[in-house]
Design a protein around this nucleic acid. Structure first.
Lengths: 244, 244
DNA sequence: GTCTATACCACGATAGAC
DNA sequence: GTCTATCGTGGTATAGAC
C-alpha cells in the first residue's frame, strides 16, 4: 500500500475525508459501505467499483478476489481494535498486580476490556464507526468457510489472553463450562453488534440508534451469567425433565 | 442422472424414508441439507435439483424462486416448533394459575418453554434434527431483507406471548431494559443454534457434538442475566468511564 | 506498476414444446 | 408436470494501453 504514482504530481493532497484517496482506499471505503448495507453475497464487484469510480478489474488487481477484498475490509479496522483490547487487559492486570495481589480481575472488568475498544471504534465516525461493527457482527455469524477461517486467525491471540483472564476470575467453573459461557458471551455480543432487527418484533427499537447504551446494558447482563454458580445436574433435570 | 424414461410406471411406492418421495419433498429435503451445509447464497439451484434427481426448472416450477424455496424449507419445521412453544407456555401458565395465584412464571420456566421444543426438534432425526437448528441459527443472523421479513412474520405471535410472560416475571425491569435483555437472549440462542465454530478458538469443541447439553447450559446462563437487578447508571459509569 | 477493455463460464430465471 | 433452450448478470482472467 501507500504506493506512489511514477510520473508527475497526480498526487492529491487531501489529508482529510474521502473525496479522492488512492484507488485502493477508494475501493476499500466503497466496499465497506456496500458490504455493510447489503451483505457479502448481494454486493457485486460492479457496484463497488462503480461507487469507487474505478474500473471493474481494479478490484481484482489490488485485492485478488472478492473474498480477499472482504477480508481486507475487515482487517483494516479489526487489527487495531483487537490490539487495543489486549493492551487494555494488560493494563488492567498490571494495575491489579502492582498492589501486591495476584492479577485477578472481575468478569466485569475483563468484559470492559473487550467492550471499551469496540465502543471507541463505534464512536470513531471517521474510521467506520457503528456501521463497521454491524458488518463485523454479521461476519461472526456467517457460515462461509473463508470468513470463519479468517476470523479464527484474527482472534486467536486475543482469545487466548482473555480466556486466561476469565479462568482466574471464575475458578469455580470447569474448563468446559467456561468454554460454553464464553461461547454465549460471543453470541450475545456478535448478535448485538450485528444490530439485526429481530428486536423490532419484541419492541419498537431502532437498531443503531444508540449502540453505546446497548453495549452498556450488555456487559452487566453477561457478567451476571458468567458469575452465576456452576450448573448443577439436579436443577437441570428439574427444568428439562424430558431432556434425559 | 438416475432419471427415468418418460413412459410407463415411473412411480415408486416408497412410503418410508427418503429414497423417493414426490418431487416437491425431494427438492425440500435436498435444499435443507445443502442450505445447511453451504448457506443460502453459496447453494445453487443446480446443485439442489441434481441432488434431488429432478430437473433444474422443477425447483422454480414448484416454489417460484430460490428465496421462496428457502422460506418453504424453514416453514416446514418452524411452524410446528413455534406452535409447540406457545402451547407449552400456556400449559405452564394454566398450571400456575390453577393454584389460585396469578400466572407468574419464573424466567427459568419461561426459557424452558422456549428451549424444550427446540430440543425435541434437535432430537427428531427424521425431521431435520440438529442440522435444521443450525440452519435456523444462521437465518437469524442473515441480513437479507426477505429472510428478516419472513422471520418477523413467523415469530410475531410467539414473541408477543413470551414477552408478556417475561414482563410478569421481571416487573423490576423497565420496558426498554427488558427489550434489551430479550435481545441478548435471542442473540445467544441463535448463535448457539448456529453452531458456528468460533468456539474452536476458545477450546476444542465439536459443534453439534452435544447440542442438548449445550442448550441445558445456556438456559441457566441466560436466566442469571435476566434476573439480575436493573442496571444502575452509577455502576455503568464506573466500568465505562470513557463512555460518557 | 497501474489501469482498462473485454471475453469467459456459472448462476437464477423463464418461455414454450411435449 | 416436466424438459430444453435461452437470456441477463455475476465473479474472474487476461491482453494490452499508459
Amino acid at each position: 500500500m501507500m504506493k506512489m504514482s511514477q510520473s508527475a504530481n497526480r498526487r492529491r493532497e487531501h489529508p482529510a475525508t474521502h473525496p479522492a484517496a488512492d484507488t485502493k482506499t477508494r475501493i476499500l471505503d466503497a466496499a465497506e459501505e456496500l458490504f455493510t448495507k447489503h451483505g457479502f453475497e448481494a454486493t457485486t464487484l460492479r457496484l463497488i467499483t462503480a461507487a469507487a469510480n474505478v474500473n471493474l478489474a481494479a478490484a481484482n488487481y489490488h485485492f485478488g478476489s472478492k473474498e480477499d477484498l472482504f477480508q481486507a475490509v475487515l482487517s483494516r479496522r479489526l487489527d487495531p481494535m483487537n490490539r487495543e483490547r489486549v493492551e487494555l487487559l494488560d493494563k488492567y492486570e498490571r494495575t491489579a498486580a502492582s498492589n501486591g495481589a495476584p492479577a485477578v480481575l472481575t468478569s466485569e472488568k475483563i468484559l470492559s476490556a473487550m467492550f471499551l475498544p469496540a465502543l471507541r471504534l463505534a464512536r470513531d465516525h471517521e474510521r467506520g464507526g457503528k456501521n463497521f461493527l454491524r458488518l463485523l457482527g454479521r461476519a461472526y455469524a456467517d457460515p462461509a468457510p473463508f470468513i470463519r477461517q479468517f476470523l479464527s486467525q484474527q482472534y486467536a491471540g486475543m482469545v487466548v489472553r482473555f480466556r486466561a483472564a476469565f479462568e482466574r476470575a471464575l475458578p469455580h467453573l470447569s474448563h468446559d463450562e467456561l468454554s460454553w459461557r464464553l461461547h454465549f458471551v460471543m453470541g450475545a455480543l456478535s448478535y448485538t453488534l450485528a444490530g439485526t432487527d429481530v428486536l423490532k418484533l419484541i419492541a419498537h427499537y431502532q437498531p443503531g440508534s444508540n449502540d453505546v447504551l446497548l453495549l452498556r446494558r450488555l456487559a452487566p447482563f453477561l457478567a451476571a451469567g458468567l458469575n452465576s454458580p456452576a450448573t448443577q445436574t439436579g436443577e437441570v433435570h428439574q427444568l428439562f425433565p424430558e431432556a434425559g
